[in-house]
């Protein structure tokens, strides 16, 4: 239909695409459409005149606020727990480390509902720890705490994964130099290691937040669904779909927008980290590189 764009206009880009067979590009475009079309189709279904009333209803607002509150808490927990986990995995070596690394990443590949069942059998009222917690007077069944736990469980691997990768990429050279100059372990960690991987930490935290925000299966199984207490935005969408599909679509679009923003932030931060790590790359001590996954 359209004439081909004039060649000189994108000489640099042309030089790059010339290396890839055209059918590869065609398949890639189809794959891209496969991801984008459903999002576009959903946006087309939004009842725009009613959009604002739909997303600002009391139940929608309660769900959105709860989602933001719990996801932020879960992200904070992921950082507090995940940074030490990534450090231990990247900077120490112990027997069975490979196995531990795989197990830590398990929530990433588990169906969320399975995660919910696992949490239920651990922290539920009849779970492994639940009865002990119960005698201590701690009851997390149907509480916002249960939501945060479900979100942390599924989001933690994102933070550990991105941070551990960054730690291995920057290597231990600067840390070794710092140590020879008399810095103790805590100073090395605080003044050298963490600043080096800060971009990866930020992008990992952002991804964890996104995962926590989208958590559905584990929350539904483990925490229940009560407005203002445990009914997060995805659960509200699920419930609205039963009665008012228009509202469900409108709320879904909000989640899509948040996801797009989050992915955007994570991508803006990540290349920075790669650039900063690059100069050290040539002088990386042996061993730091060899065990890259």
């Amino acid at each position: 239909m359209h004439p081909r764009p004039a060649r000189p206009r994108s000489a640099a880009a042309g030089a790059e695409t010339a290396r890839v067979p055209r059918w590869v590009v065609a398949v890639a475009v189809v794959g891209g459409l496969f991801v984008l079309l459903p999002i576009a189709a959903m946006a087309l279904r939004v009842d725009w005149p009613r959009f604002l009333p739909l997303v600002s209803s009391d139940s929608a607002q309660a769900a959105l606020l709860l989602s933001l509150r719990t996801s932020l808490t879960a992200t904070a927990l992921c950082v507090v727990v995940g940074v030490p986990m990534a450090l231990v995995l990247a900077r120490t070596s112990f027997r069975g480390q490979q196995l531990v690394r795989s197990l830590v990443l398990l929530p990433l590949v588990l169906p969320p509902v399975v995660g919910g069942i696992a949490l239920l059998y651990t922290f539920g009222r009849r779970g492994l720890l639940g009865s002990t917690l119960g005698t201590l007077g701690i009851d997390i069944a149907f509480s916002t705490t249960a939501v945060v736990m479900a979100q942390t469980f599924v989001a933690l691997p994102f933070l550990v994964l991105s941070l551990e990768g960054a730690l291995r990429t920057v290597g231990t050279r600067y840390e070794a130099v710092g140590a020879t100059l008399g810095a103790d372990r805590w100073t090395v960690l605080r003044r050298i290691t963490l600043p080096l991987v800060l971009p990866a930490l930020v992008s990992g935290a952002v991804l964890s937040f996104a995962r926590a925000l989208g958590e559905f299966g584990a929350t539904l199984t483990f925490a229940g669904s009560l407005e203002g207490t445990t009914r997060t935005l995805p659960l509200e969408v699920y419930l609205q779909r039963e009665t008012d599909p228009d509202a469900a679509v409108a709320l879904s679009l909000i989640l899509v927008v948040v996801a797009v923003v989050v992915v955007g932030i994570a991508h803006r931060v990540r290349p920075l980290g790669a650039l900063r790590a690059a100069p050290g790359g040539s002088a990386r001590p042996p061993g730091g590189h060899g065990r890259l996954p």
């Binding site: 539920g124 009222r125 199984t221 229940g224 669904s225 699920y238």
Partner: peptide, 21 residues
């Protein structure tokens, strides 16, 4: 005064069979 208002009756039953409710 429910502690949870589920989207489906199977979810209600699940909370009872697991002993959560």
């Amino acid at each position: 005064v429910p502690v949870s208002e589920e989207s489906s009756v199977t979810d209600v039953l699940g909370k009872v069979t697991s002993g959560q409710a």
